[in-house]
Amino acid sequence: MARLETLKKLETTLESFLDRLIASEPGQPDFCRELETLGDIKRDSLRGRHINSRLGNWFARNNNFWEGSKLQDSEIADISNMLREIKKGLDDSDPESKKLSDEIAHWHENRVIPGRKLVLKKKQSENQSGISEKFTELLNKEAEYFSKALDNKKHLLSLLDDVLKSAEAKEDPMFIHLAGSIIYYLKMRGYKVGPFVKRLKEIEEIKLGTSHVE
C-alpha cells in the first residue's frame, strides 16, 4: 500500500512539473501550427480552391507574430516561398484577393520575409540546349504538383478538372501543359475528352491569346 501511495505522489508531482514546464514554453509550437496551416492553404491554392478567408484569418492571427520570435532562416524561407506561391494564384481583379496580395507585398516590403533575389541573366536562344533543360524542369514541376494532388486519391478525371480550374485562375502556363498532357493520356485510354478539349482551348485563348489544342 505504501508503494502505491508513493507512486501516486510521484505521479502528481510529475504531472505538476510537466504542467509548469509547458506553461513556460515559448510560442514555438504555435508557430509550427501556423506554418502547417499556411502549407495547407498553399496546397489548396495550387488546386484552384478558394483560400481567401483562411488566408485573411492567417494574416490576422499572425500580424504581430514576428515580434520577439526566434525564427530560423529556413523557417522564414519556408513562409516566404509559400506566400509567394499563394500570391501567384490570387486574382488581383477581385478586391478581396487584391487586398491579400497587397498584404503579402507589405510583408516583403517590411522585410518580414525576404524578397526574391534579383538575378539578371542573358536571354538564351531556344535553339540552344536550354530548351531541353526547361522541358525537364517543367516535367519535374508537374510531377511534384501531381504527386501532391494525388494525396486525396481522386480519379484522374477529377484531377483534370482541378488542373483546368487552376489553369483558368493562375498565370502559370504549367497548368495548361499539364491539362493537355492528361487529356491526351485519357484519349489514348479511350475516354471521351471532347468537353475537356473545348475548355482547354478556351482557357488557352484567354491566357495565351491563341490556341494550340486541336
Binding site: I22, E25, P29, E36, S74
Partner: peptide
C-alpha cells in the same frame, strides 16, 4: 528545424497540455 519535426514537437506540447 524541419517543418515536420516542428509539427511533431507542436503536437507533443498540445498533447501534454491535454494530459494525453
Amino acid at each position: 528545424m524541419s517543418n515536420e519535426t516542428g509539427v511533431s514537437y507542436s503536437r507533443a506540447i498540445q498533447a501534454l497540455k491535454e494530459r494525453n
